[in-house]
Design a protein around this nucleic acid. Structure first.
Lengths: 240, 240
DNA sequence: CCGCTAGGTGTACGGTGTACACCTTTACGA
DNA sequence: TCGTAAAGGTGTACACCGTACACCTAGCGG
């Protein structure tokens, strides 16, 4: 913080240094702890200095997203649309898993940046060059939604029942909770019971996120394929 | 604020009054303007008074979600699973459209409340009583994700290009922007052009949200149906 | 050498959630 | 009828947030 930071302070800040520092910081401490003040401190600089390189926090977040969109890497050329899309989504997913903060940020973003538009454009391109009609491509893009980025909106989530503090909650209390769950939410209970049985864990979501993601992704892709093959148009399906 | 609020203040606050006032306020001013202070003011009470009925803001938000989950209404009984699910989702969607703040709140919720669990349980129940295996139901629930609540994660969104201030941006500037978009994002441009042509608007998203939503929903439901009919299990598809 | 400008500083304002100690009203058992 | 305990409302205070605004300073082109 003293000599090193001091030396680093010599070479002046710039937008990129700010953005990548923000990415690193968010990776480390989580997006909810990323404040302008904290980021400035990390850069050995006074908070207001950041505003010489970034208009406001909104723009900072946008820039951070841009930064990691750059990590996704280009689409593989000359692949059939389906595998091209699949690979790109899964590769985006890898990036997003490295930067867990990105999901909420992307979701709440309001002003889409050129980099993001570029990514989406490439995405649409895969369908179009795959022979999809413009019409179908449009709807398909909507149907992909945020799955385009490699994440699903999980409403399930862990943390509901007992937790990771294994022995924290005594076994009998946990049993009582399970019992109550079985009474009040029998269907969820069934599902959870099977999922829990599949791997060892007793409670905490026994779900393979990657598997669930690919399950849904492939379901969609297969659907797209079918529509494409039967020359679907928005008029035919159920009329706009 | 004076006599009426004073009179209302006589009858003491309770959790429900707090929650429904919060819902109303969020409906009116948006979730980002819903602060404890503002809500307290609306109730003619000092901020800290709220904490006698709600542990903290997190819990307030959770309670608000509970409140509107109650608006969704019960599932229709004895309908085939597909239409039952479809109806329930679309009815949830109606509620969520009335309370636009609910989407971000549900998405960021971490501690799922019983009411939410109840809704999800009913959801799972429709598949199970429809004959779905527990296994398939599990994956199907994940695949639904937040679509269960009637909303899609729109990464597209308006506001990107020009806006609603029709004459604000001169026509030539708008043309220049369109030109630039055509150059940088040719695929998106094609899609947008068609969508814009379909209805009158020149720019602003020419998308029928309801249509897009149902398109994706039906795509998923059809996919589920197919898997169900062919007795899909997680082993068969692509192996867990 | 001057002066302009890009970049860093310091202070200050209005907002947030909420901890904590306090007061007031109400309900109820003796 | 009264005393008291609890439930509910109040006031103050703290730490934090984003950022407006005025200022200073170093470096560079004319």
């Amino acid at each position: 913080m003293t000599l090193l930071a001091e030396a680093a302070r010599r070479i002046p800040l710039n937008r990129d240094r700010v953005l990548s520092a923000a990415v690193v910081l968010a990776d480390e401490v989580g997006i909810e702890s990323l404040s302008m003040r904290r980021l400035a401190q990390e850069l050995g600089v006074v908070p207001m200095a950041l505003y010489k390189h970034v208009a406001n926090k909104e723009e900072l977040l946008g820039g951070m997203v841009d930064t990691i969109v750059g990590e996704i890497g280009p689409p593989v050329p000359d692949a059939p649309w389906k595998s091209a899309v699949r690979l790109r989504v899964l590769s985006a997913r890898q990036v997003l898993l490295r930067h867990p903060w990105a999901r909420p940020v992307i979701e709440t973003r309001t002003n889409v940046t050129p980099a993001v538009l570029g990514y989406m454009d490439g995405f649409a391109g895969m369908f179009l060059t795959g022979g999809f009609s413009v019409d179908l491509t449009h709807h398909v893009m909507h149907a992909m939604g945020s799955r385009m980025w490699g994440f699903t909106q999980e409403v399930f989530d862990d943390s509901a029942g007992a937790g990771n503090q294994h022995a924290q909650v005594p076994a009998d209390a946990r049993a009582a909770m399970a019992q109550q769950m079985a009474e009040n939410f029998p269907h969820l209970f069934k599902i959870a019971a099977v999922a829990a049985h599949e791997d060892g864990s007793v409670v905490g979501n026994g779900c393979d996120d990657q598997y669930e993601f690919e399950f849904a992704l492939d379901l969609l892709l297969d659907g797209f394929e079918r529509l494409h093959q039967q020359n679907w148009t928005s008029g035919g399906g159920k009329g706009k």
